[in-house]
């Protein structure tokens, strides 16, 4: 059963990479990157169970915490064109 789960998650990798390469906008690529991050966590967990070494899970926590940072950095850059600015200095928009 874990093998089936591993195959499913690996297939999800393939689809997400396809979207990341094809994606017409940058947001598609970011979405695909986010999905690959989640899929990598699940792949780690499933592989840890398949090989009976569940200490891989620490790395999964690292992924989960740091995936958000990369995504937010890209999006913030797009929104403001600058990583340093805070939202309070912005004029009212949206």
């Amino acid at each position: 059963m874990f093998t089936a789960a591993a195959i499913a998650v690996a297939l999800a990798h393939v689809f997400a990479v396809y979207r990341a390469l094809k994606g017409p906008t940058v947001f598609d690529r970011v979405l695909a990157a986010n999905t690959i991050g989640t899929a990598a966590i699940l792949l780690l967990a499933v592989l840890g169970f398949l090989t009976e070494r569940p200490e891989f899970l620490d790395i999964g926590i690292t992924y989960g915490l740091l995936n958000l940072i990369g995504t937010l950095a890209v999006l913030k850059f797009f929104r403001y064109g600058d990583l340093a600015r805070s939202a309070e200095e912005e004029p009212a928009d949206t």
Binding site: T25, F27, V30, L31, N34, T38, I41, A45, P54, L57, D58, G60, I61, G64, L65, N67, L68, T71, L72, L75, F78, R79, D93, T94
Partner: peptide
């Protein structure tokens, strides 16, 4: 192991919607 899996689950359920929200907002803004 169960505790660590629970932590991973909570992190996923927490960061996923936040990232998607930011993504949708940025896409709308662009």
């Amino acid at each position: 192991v169960t505790a660590k899996l629970l932590i991973i689950l909570l992190i996923l359920l927490y960061t996923g919607p936040v990232a998607t929200h930011a993504l949708a907002r940025a896409a709308r803004y662009a």
